[in-house]
Design a protein around this nucleic acid. Structure first.
Lengths: 336, 336
DNA sequence: TTGTACGCGTTATCAA
DNA sequence: TTGATAACGCGTACAA
């Protein structure tokens, strides 16, 4: 087995208390000479304290749970990296939890994270308040939580967000300004709050331009490529849309595939706007016009928020941070 | 605070030993009636044992460390998902460690994972034996490790691999059969073993076809888009290549960008072959011919191997699993 | 079948 | 400045 604090104490000829003091950089209660002596032994033997045992006392594990639908989704892997970078700076590590947005898996992970005594969680699977079970769990166990990307209901949790309504409004406006009046909309599942918020923006822009909206032009996809493909195919075949606004880039990718399959040229036959500005949409031809959001940064800020909550015990203070989005006009949109 | 085993024992009017027996499904030493009584209390109060405290005794944490360069790389996020899926089936969870292939970060994480008593690690940052420091660390601490994607030196570790040489041979052969004789090669860093193995395959195919190789046609990229872009730009500007073999799809993406920038048409002016068959290369036009490897499955198998090692204490048995690759011919290659 | 008591490797308390 | 010793929440040997 590994060395323990006891071994070090014995080797240094001091008590374990003294070793502990050195380990935790306590200035009081230890002389410089013994500190040096202990330090030397520690270095010599490359001793590191057992984090598990330490956790038992300190009640913190320096670990945070990351609950997301699927790490394969580039949005979430980008987010995860932002989170990990900030977390590891403060010596925290990340427990990865893929839920596929399944309530069962979410609940299972919630329990797991609790059993493992994580210090906090970053939650990107819909707003906890939208689900009673999740919400009561978190509140009952008093676990620091920051929500990200999806959420913000009644300000019950701290979180990092974008102004989804405004962003969607800007994107739709862009299409309206290009004289499109039949704008198809590929939304995300309605249990994800940002879908509805973006829908609001879509409506608002139409209203402002005096262009009537048509419910039949609105479809729902799963926020993945296949979802976008399916919805786009329906819209392109069954309606007279001249433009398509997909609520994320992944679905916009699907739109490209559907358009290609139907022999429709982008942007000549159909204009397309996405949302996120994923790195890999550089691969698309023509290049995708999209609403950029600072995914990596969202992860960074969320983690800072969470660490504040954890380390300063501010779990009762709700703090919402809004980051900016930006319309990136490229080649997939064109005047009608 | 949360309930403890003590609380449950008190409420059920039994000793903590009895509760423990129920928790661990021990059949001996407990009557069915007390079991039911305890179970009822546990359910009523939604009690779950503290995993940390349990770890102190059992010496396992049901946690495995995943050490990869960058989760944003679709290869690794796919891999991670395969790992997580198998791990979570056995109630293991994943600690995510991004190293950017930096030795410093790798070492830091190694220590961290040790301090946190992970039960094992999956390592995808070059072969540990290639780095003395990493290797001695792992061996000294006797941590179960499975390597993946990059490695296999002297069979010192269990691992899941593909036959890189053969795969690269097949890919190169494909180009040679299309009458290409000036085949540029965009390899990965030489400290990553698979780069060298693939290079071997590249050479072997040339030899077999009696086509001379030319060192000036071989460049090294960082296994990311920018790396491929840079290398491709040089090769396309400075040499007379008619085909390019990128050692992963990410770099092939870069090749597409370079080709476009230089006004070269794929496959008319230049044929391109990639490696991996990432999902998002469906976005490319023309569609990329590539050597598919079963990334998700590699993650699954690696985890199974690791769990075997952990649970059956087979950490001395070295087991290498090789999975198949498959050339996917699409539209980016053409007869010269 | 049941329960007491010890130990896991730390940190924290308090007396010396 | 030091160091015994009691926690932390659990599993388990051993005694009852």
């Amino acid at each position: 087995m590994s060395l323990t604090i006891k071994d070090i104490a014995k080797m240094a000829g001091v008590s374990i208390t003294s070793v502990s003091r050195v380990l935790n950089n306590k200035t009081e209660g230890i002389s410089e000479s013994t500190r040096q002596r202990v330090l030397k032994i520690i270095e010599q033997h490359n001793y590191r304290p057992n984090a598990i045992a330490r956790s038992m006392i300190t009640k913190n594990t320096k670990t945070i749970g990351l609950i997301i639908p699927d790490i394969r989704n580039p949005f979430f892997s980008d987010l995860a990296r932002g989170i990990e970078d900030v977390a590891s700076e403060s010596k925290y590590s990340i427990l990865l939890c893929n839920t596929d947005s399944t309530l069962g898996k979410i609940i299972d992970y919630l329990w797991l994270l609790k059993e493992k005594n994580v210090d906090g969680m970053i939650f990107a699977c819909s707003d906890p308040t939208l689900n009673r079970e999740v919400h009561t769990f978190v509140k009952q166990n008093n676990i620091p939580v920051v929500i990200v990307d999806r959420g913000l209901e009644d300000q019950m949790y701290s979180g990092v967000f974008i102004d989804n309504e405004k962003a969607a409004y800007m994107a739709t406006k862009h299409l309206l300004e290009l004289s499109h009046t039949r704008i198809g909309c590929i939304s995300g599942p309605s249990f994800i709050k940002n879908s509805n918020e973006r829908l609001e923006g879509y409506f608002k822009a139409h209203q402002e331009f005096g262009v009537p909206t048509d419910k039949s032009l609105i479809r729902v996809g799963e926020y993945v490529m296949e979802g976008g493909y399916q919805a786009a195919k329906e819209l392109l075949e069954q309606t007279d849309v001249t433009a398509l606004f997909a609520f994320n880039d992944l679905m916009a990718f699907g739109v490209y595939q559907a358009a290609e399959e139907l022999g429709l040229k982008i942007p000549d036959d159909i204009s397309v706007v996405g949302f996120d500005n994923l790195k890999y949409n550089l691969l698309l031809h023509p290049k995708l016009t999209t609403m950029e959001q600072p995914i990596y940064e969202i992860g960074e800020v969320a983690t800072k928020l969470l660490l504040e909550q954890i380390e300063e015990g501010k779990s009762d203070q709700i703090k919402s941070v809004f980051l900016d989005t930006k319309l990136i006009v490229r080649e997939s949109t064109k005047k009608r």
